[in-house]
């Protein structure tokens, strides 16, 4: 074998004079090919990110006027439920009575609501354990041992400030970004 090809230098092993220039061209070509492939890869990956129409729905206005104290509503935002709850004075007191240091995810009710609107508890209705929707916002649903929310999937219990009290969930129900436009309406997102 390899009689003739003994004369044929392979791409790498080359004669004194040509060596450096050849290597440079091969490396430059390879580098360009690599950069090109990487550049093309980005749109192929980025196309899976939210498209413009999905992003356009990222904020909604919610009217809270119809929610009486002790009641809650579920709103769909980005395809997920948001709980808006009008806390009674008793519920607020119950939440404020709990020593913050004893909590798994220490936060006061004031930190979880907007100033001047502490009766409005607006949280994601998504359990921080594995993403089920907790019970407690709907009419007649169980509110769990702590009067807030109860996740039936794996038994996480939330209190009246939607803070995690027992069960596997690691953190409190997330408070989304929102702002009051008027005393009875908010913009979420």
């Amino acid at each position: 074998m390899a009689t003739d090809q003994a004369h044929v230098p392979a791409a790498g092993e080359l004669t004194e004079s040509g060596e450096r220039r050849r290597d440079f061209i091969y490396i430059a070509t390879g580098a360009f090919a690599a950069v090109g492939a990487a550049t093309v890869a980005w749109p192929l990956i980025n196309q899976m990110n939210p498209s413009a129409d999905v992003l356009a729905l990222a904020s909604i206005d919610v009217d809270l006027a119809a929610i009486k104290p002790g009641q809650a509503i579920k709103i769909s935002w980005r395809g997920m439920p948001v709980f808006a709850r009008n806390l009674t004075q008793a519920e607020q007191d119950a939440a404020n009575k709990v020593p913050v240091s004893s909590l798994r995810d220490p936060q006061t009710l004031a930190e979880r609501t907007k100033e001047g609107h502490t009766n409005w508890l607006i949280t994601m209705g998504v359990c921080t354990h594995l993403g089920c929707v907790p019970l407690g916002a709907g009419e007649g649903e169980t509110k769990g041992d702590f009067g807030g929310y109860f996740c039936p999937c794996h038994g996480s219990q939330y209190d009246t400030a939607a803070r995690i009290r027992s069960g596997p969930a690691p953190t409190n129900l997330v408070v989304p970004e929102y702002a009051f436009k008027s005393p009875t309406s908010v913009t979420i997102g």
Partner: peptide, 9 residues
């Protein structure tokens, strides 16, 4: 129109 780089793909 809306998908990232969708027109190109």
């Amino acid at each position: 129109r809306d998908v990232n780089s969708g027109w190109m793909l």
